[in-house]
Design a protein around this nucleic acid. Structure first.
Lengths: 195, 195, 195, 195
DNA sequence: TATGAATGAGCCTTCATTCAT
DNA sequence: TATGAATGAAGGCTCATTCAT
């Protein structure tokens, strides 16, 4: 990686939690400059404008969340354990795996009406998230862990939705109790499909 | 209602969809001025500052959503129908009952890290929403419509979470297909608890 | 006095210490409204604009100071005691006879370059102040208290100047010690002219 | 001096007479912008806010006055001549050595009740001014020019007070005649202490 | 490539004043 | 006479971005 790319990456990493916490509109380029201790001109050497940085930051946050989930799933052995691991990563919205909370929710809600490129990135991530869940189940069915009748696409959607809804509930509540409820229900639903 | 109160209410009503669509930080007081055709100074006759307007706007959007839901529930006769009606109101996130989408999601995600008063308002609305669902079920149990073993608080939480998660999915997707999936699952779960 | 005149006078009295303390430019009409608990329109019934109120306020503050001085002088019996009384009224700039400090200094310094009418009012008050001192001395000479050779106009000027300069020194110092020095010197100079 | 420091200094120099003439509250940042022909944003590159500029401007005006006095004193050979030179610099308040008039009087009167930092700066300058006078006399006593019995601290205070009071009188009068009177008295008092 | 000075549009808010009621 | 809603210019300040060095 060249010096330039390193700096660019450095900026993205410092900017990522700020944008995810404060929001896109409320984050000023000067916030990024302060966080990176870089000069004004320097930042604009690496990014054409704020929007270009935002797009990279959205990607970065999404990948960070993805890697946390992948890592947790990777450590699990069975399909069921993988699903449990997925849920577990997102079980404490007040102490989220990605600083600022779920980037799909944060950027999705800010971008849905006004920022098509960001919206598309979130859309993609949302689809991938559901696919990851569905794939785990499909593999579980193939390996004889789960009933072959399980509608994995449907479950992926409701599991994903429940978890995201749980993020909202818990973050505004300031505690994670409702996420436990959701986690319990999901565990039960998954257990029911075990063979 | 005095002239002043009328104007104040008028401003809130015009500002509500703008804040819910663009977000708090991205909405300028000049946007409100333009939407109301009032002078800039005039807005400040009725509101101390932007924040006071925002708080009223958050309330307004929440009440608007609440009234749409209440109205739909009111038209239904049985508990089951009431639950279906609730879901139905929120079945088309791309054409939401409140312009800009679910205000709990919009304001909750923008406020969770940086705006305690708004966060508290959303928290309250989230609690009330779950209570409405739980109360319908409790009444349904009392009237013999639903099994007395149904954990209504748990269901209220997961139904609410699923619907909110569904809003995210559909709004970034630009279509409501996943909300249909969620709606179907919820219908099935509700039917299972019928007697 | 009619109701209208009473209200007008009431506004002037409430506004006087505010303008003398904060300054003309820094005092907003809303400050006056708040202090009088009167409505916006009501204030403008009694005064064409801010400037008209300012002129009345300047007069009022000047008269207030004048009356404090007159009253103190009136209680003294001899010319020497009258001079001492004059000095005494102005001996504690941190606790001035007129709230906000000497209005000649306050309004004079703010108005000298930009507000001809106020400047003229201060100019008049400055002249009157010196005349009062000179007149006391002249009477004292006539009554045989002071040496007839005393240049009373000259002394009136330096006594007035010393006192005003003392106000500056003490108000920025936050204590009145230098005013004591000035008072002592003036006492000595006056005593020297006694017969 | 870097480009930035040069511009900063340039802004201070252009702003100094404006603030000293119009007053702090009555001077708008746009006045400074106009006087410097710089953009509004540019001013804020060099100063955090108006207040930071004001503090520099107060210092600048005070130093300007100080240098005029020092220069005049420096050209004089004897202590007596130095005192006369000091008085001479301030003898024409309508054509003051610092545009807008004595900054101690201008800023002191505006700041005494509402701007502690500025008040402190003026307080300091007032103390230094008296010290300069006292030091000249002390040196004059040591060199045998003045009587060793002269209370130089006392005289420094009344000379300073008289001159400042004279500024007030002359600026509102629009002519410097009273300052001549004051100057004459001071000359006489100084002469009396000569050996 | 890196710096930071410079820009000017735009933001929130305040102000003196007017006017319909 | 009194009220307070309405006005729009102006105020202090921030922002994303550009550009000379």
């Amino acid at each position: 990686m060249s010096k330039g790319d390193e700096t660019r990456q450095f900026i993205i990493e410092r900017a990522a939690p700020i944008f995810n916490t404060k929001g896109i509109a409320a984050t000023a380029m000067s916030d990024i400059m302060e966080a990176t201790k870089l000069s004004k001109g320097s930042t604009y050497v690496h990014f054409e404008d704020k929007n270009e940085l935002v797009l990279e930051v959205v990607d970065h946050n999404m990948q960070l969340l993805g890697s946390k989930i992948s890592s947790a799933i990777g450590k699990a052995n069975t399909a069921k354990e993988k699903l449990f691991a997925y849920i577990d990563v997102l079980r404490t919205p007040t102490h989220p795996p990605v600083a600022g909370g779920c980037p799909m929710l944060n950027f999705g809600m800010e971008a849905d009406d006004r920022n098509e490129p960001v919206k598309q990135k979130v859309h993609q991530a949302v689809k991938v998230s559901q696919k990851i869940i569905a794939d785990i189940i499909r593999n579980g069915i193939e390996s004889g862990e789960f009933k072959p009748t399980w509608d994995y696409d449907e479950f992926a959607t409701i599991m994903f939705a429940m978890i995201e809804g749980g993020q909202l509930i818990c973050r505004v509540a300031g505690n994670n109790s409702k996420m436990s409820v959701i986690s319990n229900v999901l565990h039960r639903m998954i257990d029911e499909q075990g063979i």
